[in-house]
Simulated scan of single mutants.
Amino acid sequence: MSLAEIIEEIKGKRDETGILTIHLNTDASSGNLSNGEWKIHLKNGLKELKEEVKEKDNQTELKALKKLQDKVEKEIATHQREMRKGFILVASADGELWKARILQVPVTTSFHWGKTAEMQQIEELAQRFPETALVAVQQADVTFIETSLGIIRDTRKYSWDVESENWIDYEEATTSRARGGGKDDFQHRFAENQHRWYKNLAAQLDKELKDRGLEGAYLIGSKESVSEIESNMNSKHVKGVITKNLGSKPDHEILNEVFETLI
Rank of each mutant, 00 (worst) to 15 (best):
L20K: 01
L125M: 09
V226A: 04
L205Y: 00
F190K: 02
E123H: 10
R128A: 06
E82N: 09
D94A: 15
W160V: 07
T21W: 02
R189K: 14
E253R: 02
H79K: 11
A191I: 00
G45A: 08
E37S: 15
K54R: 13
L89G: 07
V90S: 02
R179E: 03
I242C: 09
T174A: 10
D184W: 07
T147N: 03
R212Q: 12
S92N: 07
I145L: 05
S231V: 08
F144C: 04
F190A: 04
E257R: 00
N25M: 08
G181F: 09
I40T: 07
E165V: 13
N35T: 13
S176Q: 09
G12W: 13
K74I: 06
L68Y: 02
T174H: 13
K199E: 02
Q139C: 11
W38V: 06
G247N: 14
G221V: 02
H23L: 15
F190T: 01
S235K: 15
E253A: 04
A117I: 08
L134D: 00
Q139W: 14
H237I: 05
W113Y: 13
R128P: 00
L97D: 04
I40W: 08
G18F: 00
A64G: 04
K239P: 07
E208W: 06
D206Q: 04
K71V: 06
K115L: 07
L65G: 05
N193Y: 09
N256T: 05
P130D: 11
K47P: 02
I40L: 10
I168P: 04
A100G: 10
K11A: 03
Q80H: 15
G31T: 03
E260F: 03
G221S: 05
I168R: 09
R81Q: 05
K223D: 10
R153L: 14
E8M: 11
P250C: 10
R212A: 14
S29I: 08
E37C: 15
L149E: 03
H252S: 08
E96P: 04
K239Y: 10
E123N: 11
S235L: 13
K11L: 03
I6H: 11
I263G: 15
T26M: 06
N256I: 02
E163Y: 15
M83W: 07
G45V: 06
E8G: 04
V142Y: 08
Q139R: 15
G240Q: 06
L33E: 01
D15K: 02
E224D: 14
K74F: 06
S34Y: 14
K115G: 05
R179N: 03
E9P: 01
L209C: 09
Q194M: 14
H41K: 12
L89D: 05
E208P: 04
L219I: 11
I145R: 00
K183L: 14
W160L: 09
R128W: 03
